[in-house]
Computed example of a mutant assay.
Amino acid sequence: FVVVEKDPVLCQRLADEGYLFVEGDATDDTTLETAGVRRAKGLVTAVTSDTENVYITLTARGLNPNLFILARAGEEGSELKLRRAGASKVISPYIIGATRMAQAILRPSVVDFIEIAAPGHNLEVQLEEQRIAPGSALAGKTLLESNLRREFNIIIVGIKKADGHMVFNPAPETLIEADDTLIVLGEYPAIHKLETIAGRGRS
């Protein structure tokens, strides 16, 4: 990834820590082009000003119509503006934080489970997503035929279809198709093996 930053002090810190960065204003076309926005798959705009996030989103969308843009919203009402500007997804840290605090009181066991399964919180059990590549050995098989649970002890929590439809707790007869994204829960070594199978063609 490439960081776009206009603060010289922070740019020096990025350089010292070995990160790729472009010094400049992210609302400027030239800066984003220098950062490679035209060939990028995704962009995260998370500056503290919602107005600047809107400008960055507008600029990036104009330079790359197919770009996935994740935008930060700080104020109520900014989400709609960011989506109108071209954001693919909008996240409000304040809303997420408030919801998490409420859930920690109302459903503490659920929150504990999510924290355990989140990447980086537990080295053994992780909740991950894995795209099924065209030609994968899993494409065209049902969950039962795939033997993922039996061979790898992986739980398929959901399947996101290519059209964006999400299938929660899929049945054993659910068909795995190319470009599906499996939402899985399991140990890291098993998930690593799944990555290999999901991206590998039939032999």
Rank of each mutant, 00 (worst) to 15 (best):
R83M: 15
N169M: 05
P134T: 04
L175I: 14
N64Y: 04
G199Y: 08
Q103T: 06
N122C: 12
V37H: 07
L175P: 06
P170T: 07
M166C: 05
T99M: 14
A85W: 06
T27E: 07
R72T: 03
E79W: 03
E129C: 07
Q103H: 07
G86W: 12
S203I: 11
I56Y: 04
T142K: 06
S49Q: 15
R150H: 12
T31E: 04
F1L: 11
D180G: 09
L20G: 15
E75C: 04
K193S: 13
V44N: 02
Q12F: 03
D163W: 10
E79N: 04
G36L: 12
I183C: 08
R131P: 00
A15Y: 08
E173F: 09
I91Y: 06
D50I: 12
E173Y: 10
V90N: 05
A60D: 01
D112L: 11
H192T: 13
P119R: 07
T45V: 14
S88M: 06
P170I: 08
A98E: 10
G74T: 00
E151C: 04
T48C: 00
R39P: 00
G86V: 13
I114P: 00
I132F: 07
E195V: 05
I183E: 07
R39H: 11
E17Q: 15
P172S: 08
I156N: 01
L58A: 03
A178T: 09
K41I: 06
A117R: 02
I183M: 14
R200M: 09
A35P: 02
A133P: 01
D112T: 14
P189Q: 05
E52W: 12
G158L: 01
Q12I: 04
S136C: 10
A46D: 02
